[in-house]
């Protein structure tokens, strides 16, 4: 059987592309890391792939603000192709820097003008830590088989979920567009450090209404195996394949 092809977009400063590639390979796909220049030159076309992933990193150094320059580049070079891609119900996934790109490009929570953002952490600095995440009820097929609370690491400086207005937040909640929410170990409300950045509504990830465009600050590609869980050694409950792995399997399952 032909394995589904996944395009992992690379630009100057992308740095989670290798492990994301490994994640999709483990999940049974045929991933390919592709530099944006090759798309601009027409050597590669995103329509030849079944899923498109913008991985973590510091695209263009996150100069100006996180993901901003890449948003500009994508809009001017791949904007229409991406609209066509998502129109065909192919998954578009943004992790960390990729999530920042998706919201600033106006692809999440709905396609249009930018209505939410990811601002500087309340701590005013980059932080790498593991968090508890509540898996929300939404249309996304990628949360299939998840328990209500899982653990994943976050590592970012600009991850504070911010909305342009209360109306937007209400529309997101009413429309069931929250993918993950930061929570306390028992699934309750999260305060710092459990809400690591001060996000509005403790929102850690969003999904489009059809569940196929998904963006999140946490890094599932860093939780593919139990050994990566910081409490693996403490008798923690991470399964042999971590929940990160299940997330990627769900995507591959969907596009197969």
């Amino acid at each position: 059987m032909v394995k589904p092809r996944v395009l992992i977009l690379r630009v100057a400063g992308t740095n989670c592309d290798n492990e994301t590639e490994w994640a999709f390979r483990l999940a049974g796909a045929e991933p390919e890391r592709v530099h944006i220049n090759r798309i601009k030159r027409g050597e590669k076309k995103i329509c030849d792939y079944q899923a498109l992933v913008i991985p973590g990193g510091f695209s263009y150094g996150d100069d100006i603000s996180a993901g901003k320059v890449l948003v500009n580049e994508i809009k001017h070079n791949m904007g229409e192709d991406i609209d066509r891609f998502t129109g065909e119900k192919k998954p578009l996934i943004g992790i960390c820097n990729g999530f920042q790109v998706l919201v600033k490009a106006g692809l999440l929570p709905w396609q249009g003008k930018q209505v939410v953002s990811l601002g500087w952490n309340d701590s005013a600095r980059f932080e790498d830590r593991w968090v508890y995440l509540k898996t929300e009820k939404n249309a996304s097929p990628f949360l299939k088989g998840f328990p209500s609370v899982i653990k994943l690491p976050v590592a970012h400086a600009e991850g504070k979920f911010t909305v342009d207005s209360g109306t937007t937040l209400k529309k997101i909640e009413d429309g069931k567009l929250v993918f993950f929410r930061y929570c306390s170990p028992d699934g309750g409300d999260a305060e710092y450090p459990h809400n690591p950045n001060g996000s509005a509504g403790a929102i850690a990830g969003l999904t489009s209404a059809n569940g196929l465009i998904v963006g999140m600050m946490p890094h599932p590609e860093r939780a593919l195996l139990k050994c990566f869980y910081p409490d693996a050694n403490e008798g923690g409950d991470g399964e042999e394949d971590g929940y990160g792995c299940r997330f990627f399997r769900n995507i591959v399952e969907y596009i197969k």
Binding site: N15, E19, E127, D128, F228, N233
Partner: peptide, 14 residues
Amino acid sequence: TQYDHEVQAHTVLK
């Protein structure tokens, strides 16, 4: 915590 000590997904003992 200010260092990304897990990028590349290699870090087992943090």
